[in-house]
Amino acid sequence: MLWTIIGILIVLWILGLIGHVAGGLIHILLVIAVIILIIKLVTRSGKS
């Protein structure tokens, strides 16, 4: 589920760079997705 959301956000980010769709909102969402990904990876590696 998380990977799907991240993939969609990356695609929207690329479209935003090409066609200026949604402006800075896509960049903010992408940063949030990367932060969530890092937190998930850190908490997963901590449990191992």
Rank of each mutant, 00 (worst) to 15 (best):
G19W: 06
I32W: 02
L17W: 03
V11T: 09
L41T: 11
L2Q: 03
K40Q: 03
L12P: 00
H27F: 06
V31D: 08
I38S: 12
I28F: 04
L15C: 12
L15I: 08
I39F: 05
K47N: 06
G16L: 05
I6H: 07
R44D: 13
I39Y: 09
K47A: 04
I28H: 02
L15N: 14
L25V: 15
I8P: 00
I18P: 00
I6S: 07
R44N: 06
I14K: 08
L41H: 06
K40Y: 08
G16P: 10
L25N: 10
G46N: 02
I5P: 00
I28P: 00
I39P: 01
I39E: 01
L29V: 06
T43D: 01
L17Q: 08
G46C: 01
G23K: 09
L2G: 07
G46L: 10
L9T: 10
K40A: 08
V11G: 04
I6G: 11
K47H: 03
S48V: 10
A33P: 01
L12E: 02
V21T: 14
I38Y: 12
M1G: 10
W13K: 05
I36A: 11
T43S: 12
V42D: 04
G7Y: 01
G23D: 11
L41M: 11
V34T: 12
G46M: 02
S45F: 09
I28S: 08
G19L: 03
L37C: 07
V11S: 08
I18F: 10
W3S: 09
I6A: 10
W13C: 05
L30G: 13
H27T: 13
T4G: 09
